[in-house]
Design a protein around this nucleic acid. Structure first.
Length: 342
DNA sequence: ATTCCACGGGAAAGCATGGACC
DNA sequence: GGTCCATGCTTTCCCGTGGAAT
């Protein structure tokens, strides 16, 4: 049934962005002066998960680079690169600046300042995930750098900023990406279906059923679509039925969760499994089980760091401070760990 | 061309401090 | 006061790399 599965992957970048004309036009206008080599400080992009913030920005970057050979761009996932040094490294790499061995870290900002002499658009995706905001001020101040900041909530970011950085960035024009409406989601799903399959494989009302379940999140919607198509395929059907959709809701959710889990190390997955099986627990209880399950366990201090990181990933949440603290998985979804933990 | 060595960076371990609870 | 905990800081370990030596 599926002839091109690529377009159903979560990271697939569609050639055409649907329903984001207003945002694209506005951001194009904001970025326009760059093509004339004029200074643009930056912009702020915000909205919930799965509403096309990253894809739209990526699309704009490509268009911008195509418009002039002078313009460099980079998109940095601050979720994965949440530490100061990691982010800075990506910023440098994006401009093809690579660090010589032995070069002191402190000079990197100076180096960046010295080397960047034509327009460089730096996108910080999930910028509210950054460990600290030291990097924002110097980047903001560099004349050739344009900062595009992407976050869920405008306030989430600003509340965490140093007040001096805050006042500078507060002047950035802001673009809001709202949740997709029912109709918008249906047309997005329709388009993806056409690209991924041949013939009429799913009806309009069934696309609406999917759109109903996702709270405006296109990523989730597409994950459901993919799984529903596969499910229909497996039972030998020609068209997706409502049961196909209903029965893969959990799978689709799990697929998104699995993508996060795959970023974890083997030890971290064991910890996750302990939390799934044992529910809410203290570090002492967790560590005791962990020690028994792993060949050579890392020290408790390190486990604390792991759990911290998993909280960062939003798959574990912690309750309480200090002594009484407990850890718990954020999702009640049961997973098939035979697969995940091979 | 291959081997050897020194070095930097990142991750983990180890240590210390201070808070919360009994 | 003893135990359990989080967290910051320093030290140690390991790995990749690039340049020198063979």
């Amino acid at each position: 049934m599926i002839t091109n599965s690529e377009v159903l992957q979560a990271d697939f970048q569609p050639a055409e962005i649907l329903h984001r004309h207003d945002q694209i036009n506005y951001l194009s206008e904001v970025l326009e002066p760059i093509t004339d080599n004029q200074r643009v400080d930056g912009a702020f992009i915000h909205g919930p998960t799965g509403v096309g913030k990253t894809h739209t920005t990526q699309f704009l970057l490509e268009r911008l680079e195509a418009s002039s050979p002078e313009i460099e761009t980079t998109l940095i996932d601050c979720w994965a690169n949440y530490q100061y040094g990691a982010t800075l490294k990506r910023v440098l790499e994006g401009y093809d600046i690579f660090r010589r061995r032995g070069e002191p870290k402190d000079d990197l900002i100076a180096k960046l300042k010295a080397e960047v002499d034509h327009p460089y658009v730096v996108v910080l995706d999930e910028v509210d995930q950054l460990e600290d905001d030291r990097l924002l001020k110097p980047l903001h101040e560099m004349p050739h750098i344009t900062l595009l900041l992407i976050a869920n909530e405008r306030e989430d970011l600003y509340s965490r900023l140093d007040s001096r950085v805050h006042s500078r960035l507060a002047g950035y024009p802001a673009v809001e990406f709202k949740k997709y409406t029912q109709d918008e989601l249906v047309s997005i799903l329709r388009k993806r279906t056409e690209a991924a399959t041949r013939g009429e494989v799913i009806s309009e009302p069934h696309l609406e059923v999917i759109a109903d379940r996702v709270g405006g999140d296109a990523r989730f919607a597409i994950a459901i679509l993919k799984n529903a198509l596969e499910h229909a395929d497996r039972r030998g059907g020609e068209r997706v039925r409502k049961e196909d959709i209903e029965s893969v809701l959990g799978d689709a959710r799990e697929e998104l969760l699995r993508a996060t889990i795959s970023k974890l190390t083997a030890d971290q997955r064991v910890l996750y499994q302990i939390l799934v099986e044992g529910g809410e627990q203290s570090i002492g209880e967790i560590y005791e089980q962990y020690e028994q399950r792993v060949r050579d366990p890392v020290v408790k201090r390190t486990v604390t760091g792991y759990l911290q990181k998993m909280e960062h990933y939003d798959i574990v949440e912690l309750h309480g401070q200090k002594r009484g603290r407990t850890y718990e998985v954020t999702t009640t979804q049961l997973m098939d760990f035979e697969d995940v933990l091979e």
